[in-house]
Design a protein around this nucleic acid. Sequence first.
DNA 1: CACAGTACTCTGCAATGTGTAGTACCGTGT
DNA 2: ACACGGTACTACACATTGCAGAGTACTGTG
Lengths: 111, 111
Amino acid sequence: MDSTQLLKGVLDSAVLAVLEDEDGYGYDIVRRLRVAGFEDIGDASVYGTLRRLYANGFLTSYVVPSESGPHRKYYGINASGRAQLKESTATWRTFAGAMDRLLGTRRGERV
Amino acid sequence: MDSTQLLKGVLDSAVLAVLEDEDGYGYDIVRRLRVAGFEDIGDASVYGTLRRLYANGFLTSYVVPSESGPHRKYYGINASGRAQLKESTATWRTFAGAMDRLLGTRRGERV
DNA sequence: CACAGTACTCTGCAATGTGTAGTACCGTGT
DNA sequence: ACACGGTACTACACATTGCAGAGTACTGTG
């Protein structure tokens, strides 16, 4: 049940994908990812990923004061981030395809 | 192009899946995995994984002398390993499903 | 006998997700 | 006025794990 290791190398793409949909701030992105199926994701993982993606030039950032709580640090995806997302999505598909074949997902699913 | 991180948490399942098909030794498993689509996999990763899986009680092991080279340490999957594979396969499907939805794989592929 | 190919082991390293603690702001209840 | 829970972010130490590199050893070939 420990999907921690599965996240490695995928969290970046997941965060970029969520941001491609709409700008967001850390706390919000954590919620969106959990709703999307990554229920056990840790807050710190997402914040760390956001900082890393920003440092790599894939995201823009701006602070928005909130009426109901502390300020929010919004992140948005830029052209470089979109290119990165496109590439990592392709890598994911290839990789997931190989995994599916190995595990016999297609064969076994039949429903 | 660096799928190194994607392997984390998946190599175990991949190795178990290959062994479910047929017993094998390290050097051979590396080749089989590469043919299966994990072309950039490192030898040391597989040997390490085999040792870990064996230490966790998922594999049996026996040495077979070879006529054309050094001895070969064969590994085979046991009941415990099969159970583990079944569970990690389920985890993988859930996880990959969430990823696919996020990345819009289904939308773009036209089944 | 040197060398390439096969086969395995060991060590140190790098990347990354996580828990924990800490800071700070806001609204509500008492 | 004050405690408290929810929101929001930061920093740090840690564990896991894949990998490169070096080393050992056996076999067949030129």
